[in-house]
Design a protein around this nucleic acid. Sequence first.
DNA 1: GTCCAGGGATTCA
DNA 2: TGAATCCATGGA
Length: 286
Amino acid sequence: MPRLHKRSFRVANYDLGATLDSGQVFCWGERDGAWCGIIGERWVRMKQGRAIVAECIVDPGDWRWLRDYLRLDEDIEAIVETFPDDEAFQFATSACQGLRLLRQPKWECLASFICSASKQIVQIKQIVRNMSERYGAVIRTREGEEHAFPTAEQLARCTEEQLRECKTGWRAKYVLGSAQMVVNGEVDLDAVASMDCASARKELMRLPGVGRKVADCVLLFAYGFQEAFPIDVWIDRGLRELYFPRRKPTKKRLEAFTSNYFGPYAGYAQQYLFHYVRTRRQQEQS
DNA sequence: GTCCAGGGATTCA
DNA sequence: TGAATCCATGGA
């Protein structure tokens, strides 16, 4: 066993497991109560007791990168205070205590959500794993080695057929097309960070396979635009049931509603709503 | 066997 | 603008 670099982070109101398993990220695996994954090119193992204890193989420096990824400096209680004071959110906030948003690497988040279209979360994880194992860099881990998520350059070198073999299906041409546009500089993912939210969304939607929903996921989960509000099938159903019973709002009407009803941290509210409606459905079925 | 999944692009009215 | 359809794949 190689020597491990270890660091403990004191946290309050942070549920690491719920956060890493909440459908905003697809590269984490849990074993023996510990979560293992690769952030950028660093393998990390994290376990939560009273604190979050993180371990790395390679010297992690000042750990700033992990604080940023986990968004440890965010005041979640102040954020939850801004959520709507309605019945739905009384249930949602009590069902999702400690649920957080992450700040993911941009390309990985983007490519993952291009693959997410009309897929179940378990299948998205499989696709991400397939692409990583075949085309991602080899990373040293505690037990041996794993593969990082492939860069845009690595995926742009693939053929559409190779990407289909990762079980991407008809999304293969979108992944390839987006990778090529990022590599040749047609869309600069770093430059998007300095845009306002609407411009950033418009820029991301120039990429094939990226519509409003995928763009909003990336804006929220990678760029940290708090006002981004992805509306997927779960959120769509939830909004209609909770706020428009016996009515039939158009998509435009729903978007307009979400852009002011949920406050300055609408994106956070969205993640709580997403987690709530999904866990509620699971409980109804069991 | 059937329905549906953290949708997008295209077509047609 | 908006609805319908197609696109692979595999859970449930």
